[in-house]
Simulated scan of single mutants.
Amino acid sequence: MSSKLTVCGVCNYRNINKPSVVWCLECDEGLCGECKEHHAASRGTREHIFVQISEYQKLPSNILEITQTCPKHNEKYQIFCKKHDCPCCRRCVVETHDDCRELNAIGDVIRNVKSSSAFLEMEHMLAELSENLQRIRKGRQNNIKSLKENKTTIEREIQQTRVLINNHLDKLQESLMKELYAAEEKENQKMSRLLSSIQEKEREIIEFQTNLNKIKQHASQTSRHFWL
């Protein structure tokens, strides 16, 4: 399809490779600048509508793939059969649509389609669908934003709670350490008093032992002197 769009159809038929500048909607082919001038001046084609190739290429690919030529008879579609909902060339009408009553010129169908109720209803449905999708998209974007904000708030609250817990633990540790130091000091004092008492008793015992040894020694000497 891209080569068909970019190459002049008339020149290509004559084995001349020239780029197309416009697209003829009636002939369904591209034309170079020279062929466009001849096309616009010729009696049979002067009423044809041209579109710049750059603009025509912007159309959706499924639209570009629509052919205006009957693949069976290789003739241009001219009639639209409403009964069978299909375009027809001149020979199609004769061969298969002879009994069909609702046959309209394709040009008339195209002109009327933009103002038809079905076309307007489709436009309304697409606009409504687009609006709903935008609302859904904005809602999801707001959800993402709200989720991020909630995450930030929760993180901040967790950090604040951790600070409070750490402060409480620090105070609790300080209080427990004070109690521990006080208990240690109290026990040290009790032990010191007990040690002092024991040392005093030890001194007394040593003194008793010394006195006892003196008594024992003097008693032995006194007894020996007495017996002598």
Results as ranks from 00 to 15, higher is better:
His84Gly: 12
Ile106Tyr: 02
Ile16Thr: 10
Gly30Tyr: 03
Asn12Asp: 08
Glu207Thr: 15
Cys8Ser: 13
Leu133Gln: 03
Ile154Asn: 00
Asp98Ile: 14
Cys35Met: 03
Phe119Thr: 15
Lys18Ile: 11
Glu174Asp: 14
Glu185Phe: 03
Leu64Glu: 00
Phe50Pro: 13
Lys114Leu: 12
Glu95Lys: 15
His84Lys: 15
Asn143Thr: 11
Arg224Lys: 00
Lys72Tyr: 05
Glu128Leu: 08
Glu204Ala: 12
Ser220Leu: 00
Ala40Thr: 09
Leu120Lys: 15
Thr161Trp: 00
Asn213Gln: 10
Ile165Lys: 03
Asn17Cys: 11
Ile158Glu: 02
Ser20Gln: 11
Ile66Arg: 06
Ile206Arg: 15
Val21Gly: 13
Lys190Phe: 05
Thr153Leu: 05
Gln189Ala: 13
Asp28Tyr: 02
Asn132Cys: 04
Trp23Val: 15
Lys76Asp: 00
Lys76Phe: 03
Ser2Phe: 12
Ile206Val: 13
Arg46Ala: 06
Gln78Glu: 13
Val21Met: 12
Glu202Tyr: 02
Arg137Val: 07
Glu123Met: 09
Asp170Val: 11
Val21Tyr: 06
Glu179Tyr: 04
Arg203Ile: 04
Glu131Pro: 04
Gln217Ile: 00
Met177Tyr: 08
Ala182Thr: 12
Gly33Pro: 02
Val163Lys: 07
Val163Gly: 04
Leu120Arg: 14
Gln159Lys: 05
Gln173His: 13
Ile66Thr: 01
Lys201Gln: 09
Glu149Cys: 08
Leu59Asp: 03
Glu202Ser: 01
Met1Cys: 11
Thr152Gly: 01
Met177His: 09
Cys11Lys: 04
Thr222Met: 01
Ala118Val: 14
Cys24Asp: 11
Arg193Ile: 05
Cys89Val: 08
Tyr77Gln: 05
Cys32Ala: 05
Ile154Tyr: 05
Leu212Gln: 02
Cys35Gly: 00
Arg43Ala: 12
